[in-house]
Write a protein that binds this DNA or RNA. Structure first.
Lengths: 331, 331
DNA sequence: TTGTATGCGTTATCAT
DNA sequence: ATGATAACGCATACAA
């Protein structure tokens, strides 16, 4: 009992062309083969509309041409941008991408990782917040924004430089007393360096600054309380605010509106990430822009590069500043 | 020459447990097996940290537990939302998701589709703008927002009802003369029904209306020209505008600002899709909200349901209205 | 109930 | 240079 309307296989092609299986394989893989055979096989392939089954290929080669992307979600435009560009970078190299939205679920993250260790995919690119993720020694893995272990390369933007740049920009724009706002401090990851960079920038420019760092689960309202406490006679005592992400900046901007503080006249705000609505509109706030296409390319390159005896433990890519209406540029 | 530090296989487990290959397979698949054997096999599995190779499984079963999602990009939050929720719906059913960002590239879309016809994935969910996409008869496919053929189910929100709802809302909110703005008219797809629904709503509520529909590649500036032409003595002659998407609405809002028209005082604006920044902030404009989680669930359900003799050609899911500061709600 | 053997589609190692 | 054949990891029909 033969399979009937199934997909044609190499065997079918061989029979159709009247050649042996191995010959078809060679033609498919571009190995040298007699010209007359080539033609016949290619015609048969055309006629049957044959295509290789890459899973069977993978079974032999222990290679699937598939990479998994672990990422919390798609709602945050920064994550979405990353997913998109990594997809493109993989595609350029003929790799498929398995999207694994982990929704910050540690168990799910671990499950995805485990899945991979059994050659289901050739490697993982992961932006994960799970501090005790178990990754086997020999699993190709590239981390984004968080160093997981010395053997696993981590790719991030230059967060320190970004923080510094934010401070310098605020100084250039005439600020005297600024604030740094951050939420989610429990995990040590690369974005944490934004704080240090900012402090550094403030010090070198003689900016006085204050920090407000919320714990992981803390309600955003605490920032509103913090801001309110710094209002005297209706005026906020800061003339510049650096928010650790555009996401936070967006919320802070809403608060400032409620508190009747004008942006950028009374207080200037700089965020981080470089988010634009629909990817092509204006930046949602003045911001430190992450080089997402470059980050994506670097991740893929590091992951797929096999003949690299030693992989860089941490790669930092340069950030830029972009105006987004929440600062008072003068030029 | 044995493979060395590779992933353990069933054979390894069998040897470790001192049983036959078939027995291990049965244990793995939950088939009845002698209790003492079970234990031994399970211990061996635990010890070796064995997991089935689902690609080898797929090779046998002609099933990969993988579904491909064809979608233009991730920058548009609506697409990102869809990808996210479809990912979740698939995950619930233990399916993996291959993300295929097509970037509106017809050739790429076709390539992805072709890939699937050779049992690389079990099915496709596709939001595609390619009018002449070739899909084989027996390929499991569910389309979003565009009917591809009578045999292929299409899932969309109730676009007609959405258009109608927009008109009714504008009428309820006191509008007398409204406009409908749309871009991209070349392809017949479900969202096109928003226009008809809107007209219908306008007529039933006695609203006078005007339409401005731009061709596919046309520059957005044409809308600005259109609006400018409808300004007399500094006042726009419309008091309500329905934009075919939130994306367009966002651009229109910027234009209105430039033209010194106040929203919502002078003119109220309603968009379509239900986009929120970061997924959890306010809606970017008053809008007709698409039920994205339900759309996702329906797509997956229709795609994976095998014992369904006849699949619905078109499924429309109910929309809702949400306030987003660009209308003048009074309650 | 347990073990054995065959085949899924492909690649690679052999003889020819 | 080409054709036959074994092997990849698993499932299953069949034999023990």
């Amino acid at each position: 009992m033969k399979k009937e309307n199934s997909v044609p296989t190499m065997k079918d092609v061989a029979k159709e062309a009247g050649v042996a299986l191995g010959t078809v394989s060679k033609v498919v893989n571009g190995l040298p083969v007699g010209e007359s055979y080539r033609i016949r096989v290619e015609e048969a392939i055309e006629k049957l509309n044959y295509q290789v089954n890459s899973y069977a290929q993978g079974l032999k080669a222990n290679k699937t041409y598939t990479v998994a992307l672990l990422i919390p979600n798609m709602q945050n435009p920064f994550f979405a941008m990353l997913a998109y560009h990594i997809n493109l970078s993989l595609l350029k190299r003929k790799y498929r991408m398995l999207l694994c939205s982990t929704d910050f679920d540690a168990a799910l993250e671990q499950e995805y990782v485990t899945m991979v260790q059994q050659n289901k995919v050739d490697g993982i690119i992961g932006l994960t917040y799970n501090p005790n993720l178990v990754i086997e020694e020999n699993t190709p893995f590239v981390a984004i924004d968080r160093s997981i272990s010395p053997q696993i390369p981590c790719v991030a933007c230059d967060n320190f430089a970004g923080g510094q740049l934010a401070a310098e920009k605020l100084a250039d724009l005439g600020c005297k007393k600024v604030a740094f706002l951050r939420i989610g401090s429990s995990l040590t990851n690369e974005p944490n360096k934004r704080k240090a960079g900012f402090e550094n920038g403030c010090l070198s420019r003689g900016l006085s600054y204050e920090m407000k760092i919320l714990d992981d689960g803390a309600p955003l309202e605490e920032f509103e309380k913090f801001l309110t406490e710094h209002i005297y006679d209706g005026r906020l005592s800061f003339d510049g605010i650096f928010c650790v992400t555009d996401n936070l900046a967006f919320s802070i901007l809403k608060m400032l509106r409620r508190l009747h503080q004008n942006v950028p006249e009374d207080v200037q705000v700089i965020g981080f990430d470089g988010i634009r609505l629909f990817g092509d509109q204006d930046y949602i706030c003045s911001t430190i822009v992450q080089p997402v296409p470059e980050i994506a390319e670097m991740c893929v390159e590091l992951l797929l590069q096999e003949n690299m005896t030693v992989k860089p433990p941490l790669v930092c890519l340069p950030v830029t500043y972009a105006y987004g209406r929440t600062t008072s540029e003068t030029e």
